[in-house]
Design a protein around this nucleic acid. Structure first.
Lengths: 155, 155
DNA sequence: CTGCAGACGTTACAATATATCATCTGCGCT
DNA sequence: AGCGCAGATGATATATTGTAACGTCTGCAG
């Protein structure tokens, strides 16, 4: 009994991840097309945050034809809206979201040495940020919480 | 008795602000040149975060000659290092720092409607962010905490 | 007066992001 | 089948943001 042919270099949870993404897109009223699947595959294959152009290159390679950046941007925007991917603002880059179903505010730890970026959830902290904003009369919609620094490996 | 000739449309603390900036630059071992003063003036004259190109335009106007973006970038980088200005990552733009002397981690509240951006200090929150990072084995250097949403005026 | 260092200028270019309009494809309708 | 629409994608152009490389100027130490 053959397992799946392509498993993305044994990244965690290859096809479960894709299923979760597809479901999240459906919840968001969006289709899961071949192109979107390609973009998601490319995105998920990166360890570190990938720029739209990195992804465009990867998709171009996998499709054997030139895919323009703007197509990728369109799809990434949908992904972000559907919580399937997140944009790392301080890196102008995107990461696949491993858990599109639960919607925490993200905290990213971005290593300035190696670029490795990890995602932590800490609702106490993120609620604290939202509360501080509200206390200032501001209606928070999307907190951007990223920490630049040095990861354990590079320390 | 005349007050200062140019007071930047009565922005808060015009010349005190400049003094504070100059001192902070000195502490950082950097000179306070005419060009840097121009860039700072331009930056401080914006209510909202200003892009390097916005600033380059403003400086060009005030100098009556074309000032290239890369000169502005160089100076903005020094400003950021000296804590005289801060970069708003989610807006690719810069803000003058009203208190270059005290170095809190900043929290910015960026209104998606009007672009107005306010700066709040809440060390409990920012220490919480740093602590969460450390708990994950990460050495925080520069937290980026920005909240996108709606300001009181636009609510 | 010479040489050096720091600041700035000039030019070119790279990287990131968006706008506009064309085309394709599936699908419901007649 | 033929029509027309809507959503997705393609293609092209352009805008915006950010760097690199190197030249010039100026003040100052020797």
């Amino acid at each position: 009994m053959a397992t799946h042919v392509h498993n993305h270099h044994d990244h965690p949870a290859g096809d479960d991840l894709i299923d979760a993404a597809r479901n999240a897109m459906a919840r968001s009223g969006e289709q899961w097309t071949a192109m979107r699947a390609s973009v998601f595959d490319a995105l998920a294959a990166f360890e570190n945050p990938a720029s739209a152009y990195d992804i465009a290159d990867a998709v171009s390679k996998s499709q054997g034809r030139r895919v323009a950046a703007n197509s990728v941007y369109r799809i990434l925007d949908l992904f972000v809206t559907a919580n399937v991917a997140t944009r790392v603002e301080s890196a102008n880059a995107y990461l696949a979201n491993a858990h599109p179903d639960c919607d925490h505010d993200c905290i990213f730890l971005v290593c300035d040495d190696c670029g490795n970026t990890t995602h932590i959830d800490d609702d106490d902290v993120t609620q604290g940020v939202r509360a501080a904003a509200r206390k200032a009369g501001f209606k928070p919609v999307r907190p951007v919480i990223e920490v630049r620094g040095t990861c354990a490996d590079c320390a």
